[in-house]
């Protein structure tokens, strides 16, 4: 009996510690992703208000080196998949703050055309659509969207392309089109 109580108390304590800890763990992300995950840019992605599913699977793939990352996989390697899932939930619940970028109409118009032709089917007309595993792109920092898209176009880069579907669509775009579509999507709200 005594034993059981002790074990029960331990579980509760651990549960509480973990719940309290997620805010603490999540705060370690702020210096790169912004307070509460709302990045001030220009290359660091906002993760506040992003699709929880996307946040979780991206981080788990990064941690297990199934997806290319320059630093995230290394930062995450000592966290459990469960802690990662809790952080995904934590940030998904924060308000989405659209990137503060002034729209350049020339780029916006070119980008809109590229988006209609190449991205809309999966990401929606302005990158607003969030399906099961796809991220919100509308209002994400253009600098980040360019970097991510270049994974699919850069000839020196061939490790762990995360999505075949993306590779097919984005892989053939000219650099100017990537920049334009990133600008168009990033300046949507």
């Amino acid at each position: 009996m005594h034993h059981k109580v002790a074990a029960f108390a331990f579980c509760v304590a651990a549960g509480v510690a973990q719940a309290a800890d997620i805010a603490g763990l999540a705060a370690t992300c702020h210096s790169c992703h912004g307070i509460d995950g709302a990045s001030v840019g220009p290359t660091m992605p906002s993760i506040a208000g992003q699709n929880e599913n996307y946040l979780r699977h991206v981080m788990i793939e990064q941690k297990h080196d199934q997806r290319y990352s320059s630093i995230m996989g290394r930062l995450l390697r000592t966290y459990s998949d469960e802690e990662i899932a809790l952080m995904a939930r934590h940030f998904a619940a924060k308000p989405w703050v659209p990137a503060a970028v002034d729209a350049d109409m020339r780029l916006v118009n070119r980008g809109r055309q590229v988006a209609q032709k190449t991205c809309q089917r999966c990401h929606g007309a302005t990158g607003e659509r969030v399906a099961e595993g796809t991220p919100r792109l509308a209002g994400q920092w253009p600098g980040y969207l360019v970097i991510e898209s270049m994974k699919y176009t850069d000839p020196t880069f061939h490790r762990n392309k995360p999505s075949e579907r993306m590779a097919e669509r984005v892989g053939n775009l000219a650099v100017e089109d990537v920049q334009a579509v990133a600008h168009f999507l990033g300046t949507r709200k």
């Binding site: 702020h30 210096s31 790169c32 912004g34 307070i35 320059s70 270049m150 850069d154 020196t156």
Partner: peptide
């Protein structure tokens, strides 16, 4: 690859902007 070195330089600047905003903005 060159892509990684170049984008880490770009992320470095993103880091600076975010940590400076955390501290001062």
């Amino acid at each position: 690859p060159e892509y990684m070195r170049r984008t880490e330089a770009e992320f470095a600047y993103g880091w600076l902007r975010n940590i400076a905003a955390e501290a001062f903005l």
